[in-house]
Structures are given as C-alpha cells and as structure tokens.
Design a protein around this nucleic acid. Structure first.
Lengths: 150, 150
DNA sequence: CGCAATTCAATTGTGCGCAACTTAAATTAT
DNA sequence: ATAATTTAAGTTGCGCACAATTGAATTGCG
C-alpha cells in the first residue's frame, strides 16, 4: 500500500511537470511561464485584485509573486499601484495589452484539453475529486516533531 | 470542457505542490529535498546506477541531476565515480550512510499514504491510470510552429 | 492616546526544472 | 586512420517555490 502511495506521488509529480512543459511550449511565443499565465487567468476571470488575493487563489506567497508580477509589469500586461486607503496593499490591474491577451490565448485551453486525454466528463470529475482530496489531506501532514520519533 | 481541463491542470499543480511540501516536512530532519529522496529511492530499489539511467527513471536531465548529486555526495549519502570502460559515464553508488538511511526513512511512505487520503486500492489504481494517461498525452503537445498559427 | 501585535509586500537565499551550451569521450563513416 | 557524428555529464542562466527576514502601515488593546 505504501509503495502505491509513493507511486501516486511520483505520478502526480510527473504529470504536473509534463503539464507545465506543455503550457510552456504553448506560451513560448508570448514569453510567458505557466505561473504567469495562471495569474493572468485569475485577473481575466475575477478582475483586478490585490497581491494578497492572487496569492490566496493560487496558493503562492509574495516571495514568488513579487518578482513574477514585476516581470508581468515589465512585459506591460499588468500595472501595480499602492492602495489609496491602505498603503500596505498593492493592487494589480490588467493593462489594455493584458486584457487583449485574453483573446490571443483563447486557443490554449482547447489544446490542453487534448493533452489531458480525458475522454469523458465523468472521468474528469472523479480525477478532480481525487486531486482535491489529496491536496487537502497532504496539508494535514504536520511538521516533524522532535518529541514524537516514530 | 476547456475550462474543466484548465481546472484539472491547476488541481494537478496544486496537488503536486502540496505533496512536495508534505515530503519536505517529513524529510526536514535529514535536510533532504523530495527530488533528492526520489534519487535515493531509485538507488535503494534498483542498486547503483549511472547518472543517465537515474535521469531516465525520474525524467530529469543533467542540468538538474549534476548539482543535486553533488549535494547528495556532500552529505555523504552517495559517491560518484567515472566508469572504467566508458569514461563519459559517471556511476552513482550508495555509501554505507546512504544504505542505512533506507531504514531511517522507512516510516515516510506510511505517513504519505495517510496524506493521499485514498481509501481503497481501486481508487488508487484509477488515479494512477489517469495520471499516466495525462503524462503521456501532454508529451504529445508539439512545440508551437511559426507556420501553423492556431 | 500610545504602544504592541498584526498584516502586507518585498527581499534574500537555497534548490529544483529546464533550455542552451560546453567539454570530453566514444562511435560511426569515409 | 581520421573526420564527422553522437553520447554523457557538467555548467550557465532564468524563473518558480518556499522559508526566513525586513520594513512599513494598520489595527487593537490598555
């Protein structure tokens, strides 16, 4: 059983890397990474957002997001501005170029859909459920405790 | 359908990161990363191997493996030696410390098993099949071609 | 009000993942 | 035999993931 679980983890890791590579190839003409694409998807679907909310959506901290957003800003797809009310907050806003990129990249989900090799929706639902269950329960594993050797 | 596939990819990415974090926590007392652990698992189960074969097993290239193996060597878990017959090849061998680490880390798969939240073996099998299918078909997505827009 | 605790973003540092390139050795072809 | 090709491992460079720290702003509590 334990061996199977190690296999599940490795398969997860392999599948995730294969997926990232696929997105990277599709996004290459725009010089975008998969994570940068995820941020753009979040902004397209949810509108402008502060850094903290983007981080909550994608489960990324400022150590990842700050330099990533700087690069998206350099490419002129987003702008960052300190909030007027609370100047700790930095609001992220799509530029016109960032907005119009949505149509340019509209072909990507369909190409990825082929890549999932998921024939029917029923399989996809089960897979999603399994992945969500794993994500949730992996987060339960506690930091190793000096006292409880085991 | 396309949106679901984007969701599958993101869920994959999230589950994979959650899993890596879980391993990282469990491996923290030994200062090992998940990828370093994978290399050790490969050596424990298959015996000594040249770098190229480790790379084939884990789908990692020398750009990742060379520095990783250097760090495992510095921790005295492995040794590297140029092959006598073919001096392009570098053979990786477990040290006594690397061998005995296997027992020390024997508790980890069981703890990860809890983390997968997979109740029965049947679910695990289906999940494995889905992940392998995704890995295989994602590798089919071709590099974007200048000529064929779309 | 005044100060401690909290929150938010950025920075620093480490290691992985991967593309591109280098170097050296072995293989193949001529 | 030697030139061309291929193979193996290493190096460089970039971006992400994440822990730890910093600094500034805000909130909360006495």
């Amino acid at each position: 059983m334990a061996i199977v679980d190690d296999m599940v983890c490795f398969s997860l890791y392999s599948a995730s890397r294969a997926t990232t590579r696929a997105y990277t190839e599709l996004l290459a003409p725009w010089q975008l990474t998969y994570t940068q694409y995820l941020v753009l998807v979040a902004l397209w679907s949810e509108g402008d957002k502060p850094v903290r909310e983007i981080g909550e959506m994608l489960q990324l901290d400022s150590g990842t997001l700050s330099p990533l957003l700087r690069r998206l800003e350099q490419k002129d797809f987003i702008e960052r501005q300190r909030d007027d009310q609370d100047s700790r907050v930095v609001n992220v806003r799509l530029t016109p170029a960032g907005v119009s990129l949505r149509k340019e990249l509209a072909h990507i989900p369909a190409q990825i859909a082929c890549g999932t090799g998921l024939s029917d929706m029923e399989n996809a639902k089960e897979l999603l459920a399994s992945l969500h269950r794993i994500t949730a329960s992996m987060q339960q594993i506690p930091a190793p405790d000096q006292a409880s050797g085991q």
